[in-house]
Nucleic acid binder design. Structure first.
Lengths: 229, 229
DNA sequence: TTCTGTGAAATAGTTCACAGCG
DNA sequence: CGCTGTGAACTATTTCACAGAA
């Protein structure tokens, strides 16, 4: 296969390219220039060209890239030419939100199972999927042939759940809780945390406010620091 | 104020340091070495030292950093010495999940308002907050003095909602929909998209599978590409 | 002696700018 | 002629490694 070593930065941009390309295709565009795709994805056009070149994807000089081919190739690079069934552990509000959100199924990640430790929930059907008990994890993984899971439990049990998932054969985990989980290197984990995102926003917002002379916001400001030499 | 220019990479790590430090403090640790904090945060210790130095935070040679002081300083750097009230637009499953998730309130982001366009929802109370109509946005922003908002609507209306938020005076937005929104530079926006995260996981998973000789997974593999010279 | 603070080296990622293909 | 593909310059970020403070 053609891909050498694809940088993390490149990988992170691929889903965005894909989304833009799907829009373009829906609007009937047959080809697209790196310039245009760059504009839609909010990156530099050289970056687009280099990312694609890295994947071994080639365009036509003087014309651009074939939209359909590009979609196919990026899908292939991301491993999306097949659907990846997923399971969701934790059917609280968040788990339900995920189950009812059609965007996963439509983008190639059908939710095949919902698991919880609460026996009272077992058997309830959410978005067409019956909730099963976490104790049956092994059987579920085998039955549905899933390799990816989303953890939507309370943070306190995330690590424990992650270990069970790993033991059951899950190899990629999206952790939606506030605590990071640690697993062997061969398991791929990504964490998404709302509070983290808001805190980052807060940093920039605070800075902006400070730059404006601190109008309005009554910051309990830190004691002045002696700057290091 | 002591902060020169803090890199985005550094800012993104601060919430993680903070979480680790709060754990340490809860366990009674009075001081922490960069080595230990690095280990907990899964980064290199030199990175920790440099990040802190960038913020003007200084430790004690031979000892480490004072945990409580560090928490205070990072909080200050992130602008978290005050609470940032937020509002959530879109009270579907996701909006409800956010409203019921205590992790935001406890980390300094109390949800002060829930807005929706569906008149049938207006007046319902979710997690102690009454749903209001999006048309009343201006009044709500003024009344609650909020500067940050989370968009949890269907993707199709995200852009429109974002513009209304901006017009109403919101300056930081967390976009939880699949489509990016574009706004003037002075508005800070972050997008979190589930499918994007899963696609990134998929890339690494596919690669791992391929490396193992493709056992099991029946990938519709792309036609072999001629590698560029 | 331990652990910070930081020059300097190394690595990663972006962008320019242009030769050259279609 | 327009646009790709890519050397080479540039910028950002990480990491090493060590002088020096407590």
């Amino acid at each position: 296969m053609a891909n050498e070593r694809v940088s993390g930065a490149t990988v992170a941009r691929l889903p965005n390219y894909l989304r833009c390309l799907i829009d373009l295709a829906a609007n009937g565009a047959a080809s697209v220039s790196s310039e245009r795709l760059a504009e839609l994805s909010d990156v530099n056009s050289a970056t687009v060209r280099r990312d694609l070149a890295t994947l071994g994807i080639t365009g036509t000089r003087g014309v651009g890239y074939d939209v359909k081919y590009l979609v196919f190739q990026i899908n292939a690079a991301l491993g999306l030419n097949q659907a990846w069934p997923i399971l969701v552990v934790g059917v609280g509000n968040l788990g339900r939100a995920l189950a009812n959100y059609g965007g996963l199924e439509s983008r190639g990640f059908p939710i095949r199972a919902l698991l919880d430790i609460d026996a009272a929930l077992v058997g309830d059907v959410v978005a067409g999927v019956a909730i099963e008990h976490l104790d049956d994890l092994d059987a579920v993984v085998e039955r549905e042939d899933v390799a990816m899971a989303v953890i939507a439990t309370p943070a306190a049990v995330a690590q424990e759940v992650a270990e069970k998932l790993t033991a059951a054969g899950i190899v990629s985990i999206l952790n939606f809780t506030a605590t990071p989980i640690s697993l062997p290197d061969e398991i791929e984990v990504r964490r998404v945390d709302l509070a983290t995102e808001l805190q980052i926003l807060s940093f920039y917002q605070q800075r902006r406010t400070a730059a404006r002379g601190g109008t309005g916001v009554p910051l309990t400001s830190a004691p002045a620091l002696s700057a290091p030499s």
